[in-house]
């Protein structure tokens, strides 16, 4: 925890520099509406990143987050189109995501298979089921009440932001104040030692991926609401941005240290970068390339540091 807090300031400078830089070059960057739109977009990433951070803290990884997000969004959307109430639809969407997370956790913890293979498989299961359920097309046009979730305001701040704040507080609380939190750090720091000390490693891993599923579910539903459409590949790529937000935020891939405070800053950096590049008028493909490079660069920097 202390290490995480010590590492945050560096990133905060990056964040500030980024904001100043974009503000200097881009007219309209420093407007309230742009600010709000960054917040709205960044919130979804923030929620997913929490799930990615949990996995990485335990020295695992979760590539299934994006696919599960798509799945949750599509399930919710399709059910609403079938006339289900908003609450029920959201509940079932969330339950689907939770089940996916639970299944991932069971396979990882129970069979002891490398998380990246399992979550890679689950990524395509999630995405694939989303395709099947949606019939391969996006599911557009929801009721106003549902759109509030992603587009509405509470106290003049976008609702997704409040959702992200809640998710953050809960995960932060889990990491700081629960036995699960301590055991996540313990498993990531030294799995054998944790096990020797009596930590139930399997249960810990199961819970990590279970919570990951829940968070992906929340993110998927909010995304669908914000876009007013659930797209079967809507969550695609989020898992990668989430890993990047985690690593940029000071939690190394080698696990055991860091935390979600940094991850939030990391998510902000990535969201602002996307927004800035977008406003600079850079075509989407180039944005993709540049952000890919920046992400790989930052993870590489982290890898080089820990190699030394």
């Amino acid at each position: 925890m202390v290490a995480a807090i010590k590492r945050v300031p560096g990133i905060v400078y990056v964040l500030v520099a980024l904001i100043m830089g974009f503000g200097w070059f881009i007219p309209g960057f420093f407007t309230v509406s742009n600010f709000l739109s960054v917040i709205r977009q960044g919130s979804v990433l923030a929620v997913v990143s929490l799930g990615a951070t949990l996995a990485i803290l335990s020295r695992g990884v979760n590539l299934s987050l994006g696919g599960v997000m798509s799945l949750a969004g599509v399930v919710t959307g399709v059910l609403m189109h079938r006339g289900w109430s908003i609450m029920a639809a959201i509940l079932v969407g969330m339950a689907t995501a939770t089940a996916a997370g639970w299944l991932t956790g069971i396979v990882i913890a129970g069979a002891g298979i490398a998380p990246f293979v399992v979550t890679l498989g689950m990524m395509s299961v999630g995405e694939g089921l989303a395709l099947v359920i949606s019939g391969g097309a996006s599911v557009p046009g929801f009721s106003n009440a549902f759109q509030v979730l992603g587009q509405g305001y509470l106290l003049r701040v976008p609702i997704p932001f409040w959702i992200a704040v809640m998710a953050f507080l809960i995960v932060h609380f889990i990491l700081r104040d629960t036995q699960l939190g301590v055991s996540i750090y313990a498993v990531g720091g030294n799995e054998d030692a944790a096990s020797l000390s009596g930590v139930d490693v399997r249960r810990c891993k199961l819970q990590i991926y279970l919570i990951g599923g829940i968070l992906a579910g929340v993110a998927g539903v909010v995304l669908a609401s914000r876009m007013n459409s659930a797209h079967p590949s809507g969550g695609m790529g989020f898992e990668f941005d989430a890993i990047a937000a985690t690593v940029v935020g000071g939690t190394p891939m080698s696990g055991g240290r860091g935390g979600v405070v940094g991850t939030m800053v990391g998510a902000a950096i990535i969201s602002i970068m996307r927004n800035g590049l977008n406003m600079l008028g850079l075509p989407t493909p180039w944005q993709m390339t540049i952000i890919g490079m920046i992400i790989i660069g930052s993870i590489a920097l982290d890898a080089l540091k820990s190699n030394r």
Binding site: V61, L63, F116, L120, G237, F240, I243, M253, P283, T284, P285, W286, Q287, M288, T289, I290, I291, G292, M293, I295, I296, I299, A300, A303, L304, S306, N307
Partner: peptide, 23 residues
């Protein structure tokens, strides 16, 4: 040489190469 996990490095390459192709 850098020591990136293979899935991270190649996932990044996936995005970069796709971006260039699209552009």
């Amino acid at each position: 040489k850098i020591g990136l996990p293979p899935f991270v490095a190649t996932y990044g390459m996936n995005q970069i190469a796709r971006g260039i192709a699209l552009a």
